[in-house]
């Protein structure tokens, strides 16, 4: 095994071009588990800890360009206003120690359907900045996940950053696990209201081979909110609409039975989370929020 320690982003790209099988490692919270348990023996480890660019973020007009290795802890502390959904999700990642090391870039690189940052990225709208010595491309996050633990990166590409749309309305994230902390998602759900475009977007985690948006549910709710004039009326979402939205979210999932939960439970839980997060975001939109305290 080789261990490469590029000092700059350019060096990292060159190394990845030279060693396409190199496994990038930043927080190590996925890669090291696989090495410790002998599940993976990469030829080359490409350490990104010294590439400072990856630990920075820029808040732009429309988006936040979040460096691939910015730890979740920083997202929680610094980006709760711009990326509320992601910050909520970040707070549920692993443990404080894991949140100090793990990053959205790592979640994307691993592309586990259970990754906690996927639902809020899908719901907010995001693009992955994939870079190689050949150039840069922006991949819409929906297109980034290509299969269980597979993503759209070419062998010579590294994730430089994620461009995430700044919240233009309330966002929520909810995750079911069988423990009250330090738990991998049985399933998860992210919801973002986009009052600017009068749309809603969603993200489902751990209930399909890849993270997915609940497209039909989004279309239904977007249409229903419009038809009922709810964006302007200040009224609550009718229970029948919430119920149908929840049913559609559940229908968009294709979960399996595994050690963490049954497929039937996952669908059921998505339904409940969809209804609840819709209630919380809409309450917040109406200005009578009773939102969770971020201590």
């Amino acid at each position: 095994m080789d261990f490469l320690r590029p000092a700059t982003w350019e060096e990292a790209l060159a190394a990845k071009a030279e060693h396409p099988t190199a496994v990038p490692i930043a927080g190590g919270t996925d890669v090291m588990v696989e090495i410790n348990f002998d599940h993976r023996r990469p030829d080359v480890l490409l350490d990104l800890n010294r590439v400072v660019d990856l630990y920075e973020w820029e808040v732009g007009e429309e988006t936040v360009r979040l460096g691939a290795a910015v730890p979740y802890t920083r997202v929680i502390e610094a980006l709760g206003r711009e990326l509320p959904g992601l910050a909520l999700a970040a707070r549920t990642v692993g443990s404080p120690q894991i949140r100090n090391r793990g990053s959205v870039g790592g979640n994307l690189g691993a592309a586990s359907p259970a990754g906690d940052s996927h639902p809020p990225l899908l719901a907010a709208g995001a693009e992955v900045e994939a870079v190689s010595v050949r150039g840069t491309r922006l991949i819409p996050v929906e297109e980034f996940y290509t299969g269980v633990k597979r993503n759209a990166l070419a062998p010579d590409e590294l994730i430089r950053a994620v461009h995430i749309a700044k919240a233009d309305g309330p966002q929520q994230f909810s995750k079911v696990g069988t423990r009250n902390a330090m738990v991998i998602a049985v399933c998860a759900f992210g919801l973002a209201l986009h009052p600017a475009t009068r749309t809603v977007r969603t993200g489902i985690g751990s209930a399909a081979p890849t993270p997915v948006r609940a497209g039909t549910a989004e279309e239904f709710l977007t249409a229903a909110l419009e038809e009922e004039g709810l964006w302007d009326s200040g009224r609550t979402v009718p229970p029948s609409v919430a119920r149908q939205f929840a049913d559609l979210v559940a229908a968009c999932a294709s979960p399996i039975d595994d050690v963490r939960g049954s497929a039937a439970y996952r669908r059921h839980a998505l339904r409940v989370m969809a209804r609840r997060t819709l209630g919380w975001t809409w309450d917040e939109y109406l200005g009578n929020e009773r939102s969770a305290r971020c201590a």
């Binding site: 909520l88 707070r91 549920t92 929520q172 994230f173 909810s174 995750k175 079911v176 696990g177 423990r179 009250n180 902390a181 738990v183 998602a185 409940v272 989370m273 609840r276 209630g279 919380w280 009773r290 939102s291 969770a292 305290r293 201590a295």
Partner: peptide, 24 residues
């Protein structure tokens, strides 16, 4: 339920995973 009307999810089922604000 905190005094300010907020919710401390750490005291609820689901904990940090933010699954309920008291519903159910």
């Amino acid at each position: 339920e905190s005094a300010g009307g907020g919710v401390d999810v750490r005291a609820l089922p689901g904990g940090l995973s933010n699954t309920t604000h008291g519903e159910g």
